[in-house]
């Protein structure tokens, strides 16, 4: 029998240790049967399915998708990027909440964020440009869906949900626009709120409800803040869940043309 070198012994011990760790009780309790984290990954059709089936996030996708749908030129990944930007905005938004008070101090908080807090300026910029980008990407996604005729049967209702998601995205962006509490914010929201005041019959009430008063004040700031960080994200997540679910239930991606 050949005597193992020290190096080989170490290697063998490492493989044994990692095998017993992967197959051990701890990993078995965390990962589902068949997961590559439990038994390693060897490329095979079976394991390719397991990668998707055993992960809650990847599980948004079916195990197999139509071949034409994975071409980047078909979707430009716009729907996925919309969702991804929403996640980026959620993470940066939660981070910004640590440094922001929706009161008269809002403006000072933003100034401090930009000048005294590590990465404050970068994260604020990411949140703002990311928001503009999300409006754009969601709109482009809608245009892509339209030009492919992907709203047709059986996907009519998912188009309706998509329009609702676009409106919610606009509302999220609009409510966030007020939060820096500078001249740009307050007057943009004043213009928008005055437009709501032209609603027939309930115009005055709509404007009053939006402003929490007759004009944009710190009461409006608090109202928009709660809408922006809790209410609208809560609603949009529900609609997103239905949207993604319906994509799969309606037979996956549309086409090919």
């Amino acid at each position: 029998m050949q005597k193992l070198s020290f190096r080989d012994k170490i290697k063998e011990a490492r493989i044994n240790a990692s095998d017993s760790f992967r197959g051990g009780k701890l990993m078995s309790s965390i990962f589902r049967p068949g997961s590559p984290f439990r038994k390693g990954y060897v490329d095979s059709p079976r394991n390719r399915s397991y990668v998707v089936m055993n992960n809650v996030l990847y599980h948004l996708h079916p195990v197999k998708v139509k071949r034409h749908g994975v071409r980047l030129s078909y979707t430009l990944c716009l729907g996925g990027l919309s969702f991804f930007l929403f996640i980026v905005l959620t993470i940066t938004g939660i981070w910004l909440m640590f440094y922001f008070r929706p009161t008269e101090l809002a403006y000072v908080d933003i100034q401090n964020l930009q000048t005294s807090i590590a990465f404050g300026s970068l994260v604020r910029n990411m949140h703002r440009w990311g928001a503009h980008l999300m409006v754009l990407v969601v709109f482009l996604h809608m245009s892509r869906v339209f030009y492919h005729g992907a709203y047709k049967a059986p996907r009519e209702f998912n188009w309706v949900i998509g329009v609702i998601l676009l409106l919610l995205t606009l509302l999220l962006s609009f409510t966030g626009y007020l939060l820096p509490w500078d001249q740009l914010a307050i007057w943009a929201v004043t213009v928008g709120g005055n437009m709501a005041g032209y609603t027939p019959v309930i115009g005055a009430q709509a404007k009053f409800g939006l402003f929490a008063g007759l004009e944009a004040t710190t009461a409006t700031l608090l109202r928009f803040y709660v809408l922006h960080v809790l209410f609208l994200p809560f609603i949009i997540v529900i609609f997103m869940a239905v949207h993604f679910w319906r994509v799969r239930k309606d037979g996956g991606i549309s086409g090919p043309l």
Binding site: K64, V65, R67, H68
Partner: peptide, 10 residues
């Protein structure tokens, strides 16, 4: 005609 989501889509 279908392909595996992993790796062709992901």
């Amino acid at each position: 005609d279908k392909v595996n989501t992993w790796p062709h889509l992901m």
